[in-house]
């Protein structure tokens, strides 16, 4: 047996295992996708009048839908690990704790991004929005950049919430206040793109999202060992 197991292989194995299980059941991605579309329908019915002004509120609608959808997935993400004691099995294997985090986070990031890739076109069609190709690039980049933060903070906090009595009730309470700075910046960036604002302001928000991502990646890297082992 090799003395030192490759970190890349371990992270990849975790992601692969989550993707395999998801491909088999598809329960998470489909539920998340349906949730996003349903949220859009609910918004259109609940805020019918404002929607005439969609350039300004559209970004907000999109992010509220994405945020709640991401919590669905994040909650599921550790249920598999906890239910049959797999997390203990994982902890007993010679893997560095932060690698477990990166594996789980990359999986969450992947699922989140895939669902959004399908949801964004539907959003544009449903709300009759249009966007040029170059703008669409920046738009998607903003979403992906925000996804990193969502997946990072979400993975970190769902590892905590899964260990509480209330489990999935706990995640939103912890997750939402921590994610609000990112939400503000993401809404500002996507809203800015949709209403054709100066790009410098959009870039300012994107830079903030990037800073947020980096800070919480570092926090997660430093703290995950404590989160996951006693």
């Amino acid at each position: 047996m090799s003395a030192k197991v490759s970190a890349g292989k371990q992270v990849f194995a975790i992601v692969k295992k989550d993707v395999l299980a998801e491909l088999r059941t598809k329960e998470m991605v489909i539920a998340m996708f349906l949730f996003v579309v349903l949220a859009m329908v609910v918004f259109s019915q609940a805020f019918g009048v404002i929607l005439n002004d969609l350039d300004r509120v559209g970004g907000g609608l999109l992010w509220v839908a994405f945020l709640f959808m991401s919590m669905l997935g994040l909650n599921r993400s550790f249920v598999h690990e906890k239910d049959e004691g797999c997390l203990e099995g994982l902890l007993m294997s010679p893997i560095d704790r932060p690698l477990i985090f990166f594996g789980k986070m990359l999986g969450n990031l992947l699922f989140l991004s895939i669902v959004e890739l399908f949801a964004v076109p539907i959003f544009f069609v449903l709300f009759r929005l249009e966007m040029g190709a170059s703008m669409a690039g920046i738009f998607l980049a903003t979403i992906f950049l925000s996804n990193i933060g969502i997946a990072c903070v979400g993975t970190l906090l769902s590892t905590i919430s899964i260990n509480t009595k209330t489990r999935d009730l706990m995640l939103p309470i912890l997750f939402m206040p921590v994610i609000i700075p990112l939400l503000i910046a993401a809404v500002s960036a996507t809203g800015g793109i949709m209403s054709g604002e100066e790009l410098t302001e959009v870039y300012g928000s994107m830079r903030f999202i990037a800073v947020y991502d980096i800070i919480f990646l570092l926090v997660a890297y430093a703290l995950y060992d404590y989160v996951i082992s006693e």
């Binding site: 700075p181 302001e201 928000s205 903030f208 926090v219 989160v227």
Partner: peptide, 24 residues
């Protein structure tokens, strides 16, 4: 968990202030 969340929250305090100054 209390200690961990107190750190996460403390990190988030300045970020929340910074986000408040964004244009939206």
């Amino acid at each position: 968990f209390g200690a961990i969340f107190s750190i996460i929250a403390a990190v988030n305090v300045p970020l929340t202030f910074m986000a408040g100054r964004l244009d939206s």
